[in-house]
Write a protein that binds this DNA or RNA. Structure first.
Lengths: 337, 337
DNA sequence: CTGAAAGCGCTTACAG
DNA sequence: CTGAAAGCGCTTACAG
């Protein structure tokens, strides 16, 4: 049924070698032969089996992406960007979700390695503190790109937002709006991303001589949105003096917004919020909410770009060099009243 | 570097055949030998190369999903469901987006076929009217499951919502709320899904003796949300007498909601809306909006279930039988005031 | 310019 | 119960 190289060779009275070479444009095949073979191959709709070729090329034309979750729309956009750019370059993309768990993340890396994908791209789970699995990827000569939540301990291509600066700007904005008592939500005590966000927040407070108070930092537990919802509700009922909230995470903001929409008036005009988000703000209907847009799709494209670059170096047998890219959010916060 | 079957055989002084059989639990290998080989394999972390095995087994352990877009959160949930269930069963999932274009859909099917995936799952693009690519899948002995937007012209496993009934119930509900002039949004004139939705809408009107008026049906163009936004805005400005709106599509509802949130008061209390949606309603802050929840994740799981079932029949060399499953929405509409 | 041969890492029908 | 041999569909170093 399925047509093979051998079959084509037979039909055309040449050797399989010649067919294979012609299709790959080897310079030692005559133009005439190439033309004949290519024409016939096209006619019968032949394309070499990727699986069979793998045995020799060691390439599967598949890459894998591991994200913490699918709830955060940021990752949906990112995945879209990865798939779009990968498709254009002939790669298929396998998607996996770590559930923000180091254990699952390790399992998935193993599965991907087992499938012998050409590249693995990971936004680390928020509790990942051991990097054996990442070293294993590198040892197996598979391309590794870390994005969004990365780590300094591993030497590979990295792409993330300039979390420190973005958090500084967000916090500074709340301060400039007159807020002094500013809540900060944190989803992890160990992830690089969360640490950088915290540093940015602290830096802004310091710069404006606002004392840091531990009680204004809330660590969200597993169900980030529910946790945030309950927390803000309790805060509201306790007649807290909070003036501003900085939420560096879309999922957490879902919980907060849910509460605000339930309350309508009261809280609305009192508390100012800045949140990182992949969405447009207007849909939420909360005038004191300002979203700093994070463009996941763009980051997705950059991931593939860095991967293709590495593949190219590999092919040319050149030494690998790694880069760390810091992206900016899409728009600055300016119109928070 | 990478350990092979041959290498293990050498270390253990047995033949590669024996190792292969032991690892697959062939009954003709002694328990003792099996134990020894398995232990060693585990110790050195050996797993057979999927790529190499393919040449004989013709299985890649990869399946592909093609959805119209990633904008509709319904598909995000669905993809999550597919990945979760597939992972549990040792399959990796490749995700592709057709952009609701038949042309792109065909290209992607070809790419997936080229990779020789074990199964392909498609929600057809809304303009797909030619099914050659689907027949090609079937001819190549690859499992095909159609979901969400399917077609009667192809014989394979199918899973979708009971669109006719859901649309009937939605329309009926608006009628029971006192609406007579009910708008219906439609995203395609040719897709089975859209046709069924239209039939349900018509049926409800007929049953309650409400004359069907063509002007109450609006066909959304490419950018569904923007189109819907502009349309509802114009409708509002023209002081239309519309009383209720039935939106059978989440992306369209995004445009409508955007407008309502801009208007706040006026429209709010006048027009009742029912929309299919994968989201929770409370976040939108529109009291006259009722969402009929479509559980994408559940559908995703069912897709894999039907696939595994087919793979099983194939393995047993039993004749294939196909099923068409109609799912219900998660909750009935009851609390629309 | 062309092709015979080896080999990538497995699986399985067959022989013993 | 074990293993030699063929073969899955390609690619490429080598010979001519």
């Amino acid at each position: 049924m399925k047509i093979t190289l051998k079959e084509i060779a037979k039909q055309l009275n040449v050797s399989p070698t010649t067919v294979s070479k012609a299709l790959q444009d080897y310079p030692d095949i005559s133009a005439e032969t190439k033309k004949k073979i290519k024409k016939y191959a096209k006619q019968v709709g032949y394309t070499p089996s990727i699986q069979a070729a793998y045995l020799r090329t060691q390439k599967t034309r598949i890459v894998g992406v591991i994200v913490p979750n699918f709830t955060d729309h940021f990752y949906n956009g990112l995945i879209e960007g990865v798939i779009e750019k990968a498709s254009k370059n002939g790669y298929l993309v396998v998607i996996l979700q770590s559930g923000d768990s180091q254990k699952k993340e390790k399992k998935m890396v193993n599965r991907l390695l087992h499938q012998q994908v050409d590249g693995i791209f990971i936004s680390l789970a928020r509790d990942t503190i051991n990097y054996d699995h990442l070293n294993k990827i590198i040892e197996s000569k598979t391309s590794l790109t870390l994005f969004d939540n990365t780590t300094k301990s591993i030497n590979c291509n990295k792409i993330s937002f300039d979390e420190r600066n973005e958090s500084f700007v967000a916090t500074e904005h709340l301060i400039k709006c007159g807020c002094k008592k500013i809540m900060f939500f944190r989803d992890s005590l160990v992830s690089q991303k969360s640490i950088d966000q915290f540093i940015g927040y602290r830096k802004a407070l310091d710069q404006y001589n606002i004392p840091f108070e531990k009680k204004y930092v809330h660590i969200t537990e597993n169900k980030m949105d529910d946790d945030a919802y309950e927390f803000i509700k309790a805060l509201y009922n306790s007649k807290s003096e909070i003036e501003g909230i900085f939420i560096p995470n879309h999922v957490i903001s879902l919980g907060i917004i849910k509460f605000f929409n339930e309350q309508k008036t009261v809280f609305h005009n009192k508390i100012k919020i800045v949140s990182f988000s992949p969405l447009n703000g207007q849909q939420w209907g909360h005038s004191n909410l300002k979203l700093i847009k994070l463009n996941g799709k763009k980051m997705g494209g950059k991931i593939i770009k860095s991967f293709l670059n590495e593949q190219n170096l590999l092919k040319m047998k050149l030494p690998l060099t790694f880069s760390t890219e810091l992206l900016k959010s899409k728009e600055n916060i300016t119109n928070l009243k």
